[in-house]
């Protein structure tokens, strides 16, 4: 549904820009009209679309599960309870398989990560133009702004802020439990005194430090990269809709095929993020060999 007034490049760029709220360089607060303006806003700006969908999906997830949890009973489970219990049981088994210690935080954490990331990824499967188009209509007719300046990215996990936000949360937990379980000295020793002998500790520190930092970075970038690439492919296929009826039909087929394949990716990415989180936290809990 690339509109006639946009070139392909503009269309893609438009789709990949977040709706940013922040302080303009001239001091006034408001939405950025272009990607450049958003970049100029610096750190104290916020991606309204990412945050909105992220929080909304979190609310939906926990609304459903809270409802199931409130009515949970040991009798014959109904449809919703059955579904929720299936997921909870699945998460619980996975956590029990990878996490050797006992910590009541881990399973809920793993569940939150899995369910939330899955839902955020799932937004990718909603037709790529639908929600931005609705947002543009809303912006144009209700708010009276230029629709070309209404940016709306509906998949929060294609925003690195979101994935890094999650990964940093996990990272902080890793540091917290490392220090709690091994003490500051123990944690530092783990970083500095292996794998090489103690006198080589600068090298050890660099190696282990990179390994430590790589964990959250790889968590965040893996999810972001997968979802961003998937989203981009959806957008590229959507470009074919403006290239005649034959190409549009072909594009529709491609869109369908990619969406079906993407079902696998979104689930897999959510699962990988969860599993690695559990594994990293397990490592943080364990005294080193």
């Amino acid at each position: 549904m690339a509109s006639d007034t946009l070139t392909s490049g503009e269309y893609i760029k438009h789709h990949l820009t977040n709706l940013t709220f922040g302080q303009h360089p001239d001091g006034s607060w408001g939405f950025a009209h272009t990607g450049e303006e958003a970049a100029q806003m610096g750190f104290w700006a916020i991606h309204v679309d990412s945050m909105f969908w992220s929080v909304l999906l979190g609310f939906i997830l926990f609304y459903i599960f809270r409802k199931a949890a409130k009515n949970a009973h040991a009798g014959v489970p109904g449809g919703l309870q059955n579904f929720c219990e299936w997921i909870v049981d699945f998460i619980n088994d996975t956590v029990r398989g990878s996490f050797s210690g006992r910590n009541p935080l881990i399973a809920p954490l793993a569940f939150t990560i899995f369910g939330w990331i899955f839902l955020m990824n799932f937004m990718d499967l909603i037709a790529v133009d639908l929600l931005p188009w609705l947002a543009q209509l809303f912006g144009q007719h209700v708010l009276g702004v230029d629709p070309h300046h209404v940016y709306f990215k509906v998949v929060p996990t294609t925003d690195p802020n979101i994935t890094f936000g999650l990964a940093l949360g996990v990272f902080i937990l890793m540091l917290y439990y490392s220090i709690k379980m091994k003490g500051v000295g123990g944690f530092f020793g783990e970083l500095a005194f292996q794998p090489f002998p103690k006198w080589m500790f600068p090298i050890n520190l660099i190696l282990e430090g990179v390994a430590l930092i790589a964990k959250p970075v790889s968590l965040a970038l893996r999810l972001f990269g997968n979802m961003y690439a998937g989203e981009t492919i959806f957008i590229l296929i959507a470009l074919m809709y403006s290239a005649g009826i034959v190409m549009a039909g072909f594009g529709g087929l491609l869109q369908l095929g990619w969406a079906i394949f993407h079902i696998l990716i979104i689930t897999l990415q959510a699962f990988i993020f969860m599993t690695l989180t559990v594994v990293y936290l397990d490592m943080a809990h364990q005294e080193h060999h």
């Binding site: 945050m51 992220s54 936000g165 999650l166």
Partner: peptide, 25 residues
């Protein structure tokens, strides 16, 4: 761009995990 969304997401994350641990699990 990296911006305050990062912090917002972290806060949301903490809140949801806490909620899950307290009221769902």
């Amino acid at each position: 761009n990296f911006n305050a969304t990062l912090i917002g997401q972290m806060i949301a994350f903490v809140v949801f995990v806490w909620f899950c641990m307290k009221y769902v699990w």
